[in-house]
Design a protein around this nucleic acid. Structure first.
Lengths: 314, 314
DNA sequence: CTAGGTGCAAATAATTTGCAGAGGC
DNA sequence: GCCTCTGCAAATTATTTGCACCTAG
């Protein structure tokens, strides 16, 4: 629970005096998963202490929203819901209109299109709402209510690992192929080294993934949380395809740079979405590695250009 | 105004008796552009007739929402807004938090990602909300309130034409190139004919576009309403690139089929979004043309396969 | 004539606020 | 001791409803 109080300290708005009642409200709230209405929370609080008034709960909720501990969401049925932000990144919602349950997802692609639209309109984005209303699978084929819920941070970590693994695999393939196709000795050894690194890291990631699902077997079949189309066959897949068109060493380096940059940016962005947790760590470690590769390639590219210029002038 | 009453007739829910008061409410409502709160509408109604009660306006709004004449939207500030559906497809919103104005957009890509997520989760979609909250350009750099608003149907028509033109251009390029690369005489004439058709149609579309912007000069610089990344260099652009990799006649046909199908589906989908209007017509005409091309190519492909089989067995 | 539309006033429902008192620092 | 938190009850806000009356078909 030390981590939670650390989280609370960093998210306390204004000098905010502490009070045992508010502490109780915040604690009960953080223990819940999912989306509570103010009234749901009042009921939960009253189980532990009947002396706490509705207004206090409302005030505590407003205080939490201001400090970023809670997020206020609106499913359009006249009351607001609240979800806590502890180890829970901003996300989008699927809302079932028959059972009123909501499930969550993230889509890197939707986010990037939203950015594109906002830029075109010169709009500064503060907050984005994506809600899909309809009917869930459970409601349609006879309410099998096996709605086991895994903590989002675990599912996020799983998706992070899957995407990282796919990226490493395609990276390995890319550098292996590039090493084969490269004419220049020095370039070949750069690509070979990178291939070796990708291979090693791939092993680490696969082990980590195996451990994760061993500990939580339900994770394997749990629905996707983080959608990212580009990850299906790995970020380097398009690059490898390009290689086959017959590019020269310089172009191969550029393709590598492009892929590493894309993957670095992706993992950095999603790493930052998460209050510290397994998922965040995986993403940020990966982002770091990709940045190192990127720098290595960029340096190599610069040297190649310099060499070519020297040849040109002699 | 005949078209409006036709629209009303097709959207009248339950036997719905007609009444002069409700007629007035509906008429005033349909004359507005943008998003009104119930109270805004009450005020507007009271300008023309003070004898109409708030409850009646609320009842009329509910009646319109049931019949699909109006859509109820929720910008999260505690009151609902209403927008009419006449010549106005379902869309997404950018909502400025300082001036409370909202602007609209459509993104084919976001819609397709939403479909993807829904399918993965086995979710049947009824309604989709995408809202971007933040600050608009006008609010940020000193409120130049030159907020001229063009009717959505015009902007939609413009975007339809732009996308259609880009598609025709890339189609023309594709078929021209394919005709050059084709070895088989018969195949070459098919591609050549298609190229000719694309060229003719391109001319028609460009004329139509020129007429549209001549009539409404502000259209040229009005912000994009329909975002579609694939349209930037035309739906056939990727296909043309593939051609250059050196494909055989059969593959060229398949690429053509794929492109025509994609373009047919895109234009059909967006054509259907619109209550009859200029934009709808452009989209559906275009969808039709692409379907014809598609059928032609499919037929040609079948004959090619048959011929190959015959050669194979002799 | 009668189902449905209408105005008014009262009801509802979620949330906020005023105020007097309690409690942390 | 001061400032903030708290409970209670009253206020607020958007919307809906009950009911007596009116109107179109």
């Amino acid at each position: 629970m030390g981590e939670i109080s650390e989280f609370l300290n960093s998210h306390r708005p204004d000098g905010g005096r502490r009070s045992s009642k508010r502490d109780l409200i915040v604690n009960v709230f953080l223990r819940q998963e999912g989306h509570l209405s103010a009234d749901d929370l009042v009921d939960l609080i009253h189980v532990e202490n009947k002396e706490i008034g509705r207004a206090t709960v409302y005030r505590a909720l407003r205080w939490m929203v201001n400090g970023g501990i809670a997020r206020k969401v609106d499913f359009g049925d006249g009351r607001f819901r609240y979800e806590h932000a502890y180890r829970h990144p901003k996300h989008f919602h699927l809302i079932c209109q028959s059972c009123r349950k909501s499930s969550e997802f993230l889509s890197s692609d939707i986010e990037s299109f939203i950015d594109e639209v906002s830029i075109e309109r010169g709009f500064t984005v503060e907050r984005t709402v994506v809600q899909i209303y309809g009917n869930c699978l459970a409601c349609r084929d006879g309410n099998k209510n096996d709605t086991l819920e895994l903590p989002t941070e675990l599912v996020f970590a799983r998706d992070a690992l899957r995407i990282a693994i796919a990226t490493e695999r395609s990276g390995l393939q890319f550098y292996t192929r590039a090493a084969l196709l490269t004419k220049d000795d020095r370039g070949r050894s750069v690509f070979r080294n990178l291939a070796k690194e990708e291979e090693e890291h791939l092993g680490t990631l696969e082990k980590r993934y195996a451990e994760l699902v061993a500990e939580h077997p339900k994770l394997e079949t749990y629905p996707t949380f983080l959608f990212f189309r580009g990850a299906a066959d790995g970020i380097f897949a398009a690059g490898t395809e390009e290689l086959e068109k017959g590019v020269d060493d310089r172009e191969a380096l550029l393709i590598g740079i492009r892929c590493e940059r894309g993957s670095h940016e992706f993992f950095k962005k999603y790493g930052e979405k998460f209050e510290d947790s397994e998922g965040k760590q995986i993403f940020l470690e990966f982002a770091d590695e990709e940045r190192e590769h990127l720098e290595l390639l960029q340096c190599e590219y610069q040297q190649l250009i310099d060499t070519l210029n020297k040849i040109d002038t002699t």
